[in-house]
């Protein structure tokens, strides 16, 4: 039952985060010069804080609609999730430095390894990287040349 307990604590925890966000927003609105600018965010932030408090009250009296069980554990791989998210963040940050093509190739390879569950047969070993290079290269050409998007060139090369 440890999982259930964790989820129980999560409710006030998430509520606290929303209250904190709301408080930060209200604090930020005090720096605006124009009344038109702060009416909306301040109202919404106040409503959000009130809702968060309501959520905690609901949790305290133990009345809560049955949440969908997310089922985080079991056969699911947390490291792979983190690796995917990390690769994408890294790609976003490296893009201005390495240029789009290089970043794209590296990110593609990293994410491919993350998503690989099948054994590496010689066929896959050759076809997958080639397919990756063609996909990345093809999209690069499509965007950079046909659609004339100025993709980042990179400052390291």
């Amino acid at each position: 039952m440890s999982e259930k307990r964790i989820r129980d604590i999560s409710t006030p925890f998430m509520a606290a985060i929303f209250v904190a966000i709301g408080a930060v927003v209200i604090w930020d609105t005090t720096t605006y010069t124009d009344a038109d600018s702060y009416v909306f965010p301040r109202t919404i932030a106040t409503v959000m804080i009130a809702l968060a408090i309501l959520l905690v009250l609901q949790w305290l009296i133990g009345w809560s609609p049955s949440a969908k069980d997310p089922g985080i554990v079991g056969a699911q791989s947390v490291p792979r999730r983190l690796a995917l998210f990390g690769s994408m963040i890294a790609a976003a940050l490296l893009m201005p430095l390495l240029g789009f093509l290089g970043t794209g190739m590296i990110a593609f390879a990293a994410i491919m390894l993350t998503a690989m569950y099948d054994p590496w047969t010689p066929y896959r070993f050759i076809v997958y990287p080639v397919a990756g290079a063609v996909i990345v290269g093809g999209f690069y050409l499509l965007f950079a040349r046909v659609l004339q998007v100025p993709l980042p060139e990179g400052t390291w090369f």
Partner: peptide, 28 residues
């Protein structure tokens, strides 16, 4: 296969997001 689908879609999200207004900040 998944090992190609996931990186392809991920790559498309990167290039697509960038292209909306040519911004790496938007990608992050």
């Amino acid at each position: 296969p998944k090992a190609l689908l996931v990186p392809t879609v991920a790559f498309m999200t990167l290039i697509g997001t960038y292209s909306i207004r040519n911004s790496t900040s938007d990608v992050a």
